[in-house]
């Protein structure tokens, strides 16, 4: 974790160059070469000590690492899996960008991380809230950072995510995929930790007055997937996300016009403009509960609707109870 945090200054320099399409001029290599010479010369000369003061000791090694990363990125020498998950980009860039939000801004307290298995598949089922899926992103960060094996959470996201340009690209690279049985099955069978938010838009877009009240869990397709793959279900309760964007209104007409599930009105949005997009700095707690084993059921259990509903209810009840527990223990929304 600390190593990753140390990487941050290196990356801050790396990202813009990597994504800059302006390198496409035919002069590119020659120009870049001269640029390299100039920067290198300056750093080895007077700027060297200044850089040491600015970035701390050992910045050369980190810069070298950053350059090796840059080299792999610009030459395309990295791997993505079948779902488009770019492990290197996720670890070096995306998680580094989200980490300050998790650690400094929301000061997330993580409980029960040991309930996520060290290896093999698992299905993390969590409550959804907060207008924007920040809770999902934060869960990904904390599982990676707090789990001893730094496991990556592969989320099942709404199809809206994969329709939006830009968003779909980043979501795929961060390892997420469409919430459908085929993808859930495939990921669980590959032994990944899969995250699902079964409340969907009903949960994330619910009014502030209904905070911490779990919505319906859909058809419980996630239970069938876990039963088929015989992986444990880990209930996950997230407290604090509800208050990041308290939704006090919903512009339904505009939402229909834009094809969005809702257009929120919060105490700050849209009144303060872009500033209103800033989430409130609430204090979060994420608790992973006791895993619910699914390997004891017969093979045809996944097609038994009663059993699937029962299990889904059990998971839902567990999350709801844990939420109430955590809320009772909470001192304040912000501290």
């Amino acid at each position: 974790m600390s190593a990753a945090a140390e990487n941050a200054p290196g990356e801050a320099k790396v990202i813009p160059i990597e994504s800059a399409p302006s390198w496409s001029s035919p002069e590119g290599p020659g120009l870049a070469d001269r640029l390299a010479g100039a920067v290198g010369g300056a750093l080895s000369g007077q700027l060297g000590p200044a850089a040491t003061r600015l970035f701390g000791k050992g910045w050369e090694a980190r810069a070298t690492e950053g350059l090796a990363f840059l080299r792999r990125r610009i030459t395309g020498d990295y791997e993505v899996d079948e779902f488009g998950f770019d492990r290197e980009l996720t670890e070096e860039v995306l998680l580094s960008l989200l980490r300050p939000l998790a650690e400094k801004y929301f000061r997330i307290e993580v409980q029960g991380i040991e309930n996520i298995p060290a290896e093999g598949g698992a299905l993390v089922v969590a409550n959804h809230s907060g207008t924007l899926p920040l809770d999902a992103l934060m869960t990904q960060v904390v599982i990676h950072d707090h789990h001893p094996h730094h496991r990556h959470l592969r989320m099942l996201a709404a199809d809206l995510v994969f329709v939006l340009p830009g968003v779909n690209e980043v979501a795929r690279k961060a390892g997420h995929t469409l919430a459908c049985n085929e993808d859930a099955q495939a990921l669980l069978e590959r032994g990944e930790v899969v995250g699902v938010w079964p409340e969907g838009f009903k949960g994330i877009g619910k009014p502030f007055s209904e905070r911490y009240k779990l919505q319906r869990f859909g058809r419980g397709g996630f239970v069938s997937s876990a039963l088929r793959a015989k992986v444990p279900i880990v209930p996950c309760s997230i407290v604090g996300a509800e208050e990041t964007y308290p939704m006090i209104g919903n512009v339904k007409t505009l939402a229909r016009l834009l094809g969005l599930p809702y257009v929120p009105i919060t105490p700050t949005f849209p009144w303060l403009g872009p500033l209103g997009m800033l989430p409130l700095p609430t204090k979060w707690t994420i608790r992973f509960g006791e895993p619910i084993a699914t390997d004891g059921y017969p093979a045809e259990a996944a097609d038994d609707p009663m059993l699937v509903f029962d299990l889904a209810d059990e998971v839902r009840e567990t999350i709801q109870h844990t939420l109430y527990q955590l809320l009772v223990q909470r001192r304040s929304v912000f501290f």
């Binding site: 290599p29 290198g40 750093l43 090796a68 080299r71």
Partner: peptide
């Protein structure tokens, strides 16, 4: 050529 540039930069670092 791109990797040659990054390698040169790395070499300049020490």
């Amino acid at each position: 050529r791109l990797s040659a540039v990054t390698d040169r930069l790395a070499a300049l670092l020490g």
